[in-house]
């Protein structure tokens, strides 16, 4: 894709071609990010497609996707680079037999051959190729220290390795950060980024997503699934189901050759939607209560009030 000719529409359409349904506001933010060279911080509930958009965009831009999954205790050795110690030691041992002078050995074992490149260094060292999409996933799981370190990398897009020198990105990678908000991201990092909150999809959007991913799903059932999802997202579950769950459910129902939902099959397959015992329990209560109007969901799914669950 030619970067100079991209527009908000072209981004939205090419994402759509690759089966990622996104609204104009997300497309605008992605567009701005590509043009401004600024990272995007995506927040939203689990399973609304935060990670997916980075993957799809890499495909659109026809470039590599480099993914850095964050976890507690992630440090710069794992994220940036590390010296290949065993290889260095072996080299030293081998050199003991030979008679080369110490200095040349030293320069050698601290050359790039002995450097193990980790995702961040990978993303910056493009060697003239198209800049990759760098996905820093679930940043909220990493420690605060790592965040501070990331701040440094994301502001200059350069990395200094004392023994080798400074490596600078000739073209900035397209950076996506995602967070599930298990804790707050530091303000300084947020300021470096464009921010976008991905909502749960509306009824229509979710319907479109199902029909795009699984065109063989019967229309009635797709509507019923969406109506069910819209309703339960407005209730107080521990983990509200995301789009990922919707799609799992749809594909499970397809496997079972279902053309329509009925109360029985909902009970049998609801494990696709709720993954916590307390939530399953809660659902049972709701099903027997009157808040979850199954009749209406099954018979007139299109009339179930959509809108974004907050």
């Amino acid at each position: 894709m030619n970067l100079d000719s991209i527009t908000v529409e072209s981004i939205r359409d090419s994402l759509r071609e690759r089966k990622y349904i996104c609204d104009r506001s997300l497309a605008t933010v992605v567009y701005l990010s590509v043009r401004l060279g600024k990272p995007i911080l995506l927040e939203g509930e689990a399973g609304v497609g935060k990670t997916e958009i980075a993957k799809v965009l890499a495909d659109v831009l026809q470039t590599r996707l480099i993914r850095l999954q964050c976890y507690e205790g992630l440090d710069s050795n794992t994220a940036l680079y590390e010296w290949n110690y065993p290889k260095q030691m072996l080299r030293i041992k081998l050199e003991e037999i030979g008679s080369r002078d110490r200095e040349s050995v030293e320069t050698e074992i601290f050359s790039e051959d002995y450097l193990i490149s980790r995702p961040l260094l990978d993303a910056i060292r493009t060697d003239g190729a198209e800049p990759p999409v760098l996905l820093i996933d679930e940043i909220d799981r990493a420690d605060m220290e790592f965040e501070a370190f990331l701040l440094e990398v994301l502001s200059d897009f350069q990395i200094s390795i004392p023994e080798v020198g400074t490596i600078r990105a000739d073209k900035r990678p397209y950076v996506f950060l995602t967070s599930n908000r298990t804790r707050e991201i530091h303000d300084a990092l947020k300021r470096r980024c464009l921010y976008h909150w991905i909502e749960y999809p509306t009824f229509d959007k979710e319907y479109e997503i199902i029909m795009t991913k699984y065109p063989e799903v019967q229309k009635v059932m797709a509507e019923q699934i969406c109506a069910f999802m819209q309703q339960v997202r407005q209730m107080n579950f521990y983990k509200r189901p995301g789009v990922a769950e919707t799609l799992d459910w749809a594909s499970a129902l397809l496997l079972l050759n279902r053309a329509e939902l009925d109360p029985e099959i909902v009970k049998e397959t609801v494990g696709c939607v709720f993954k916590y015992r307390e939530d399953l329990h809660h659902l049972e209560e709701e099903l027997s209560g009157d808040k979850l109007d199954m009749d209406r969901i099954l018979k007139e799914p299109a009339t179930v009030v959509g809108g974004n669950a907050q």
Binding site: S25, T28, V29, L32, R191, C193, Y195
Partner: peptide, 20 residues
């Protein structure tokens, strides 16, 4: 970079930069 005459786009551009 955006079509500034479109109010939603203008809004989104400001929000992406100024809202966190």
């Amino acid at each position: 970079l955006i079509d500034i005459r479109s109010r939603p786009d203008f809004h989104r551009a400001l929000a992406a930069n100024m809202l966190h």
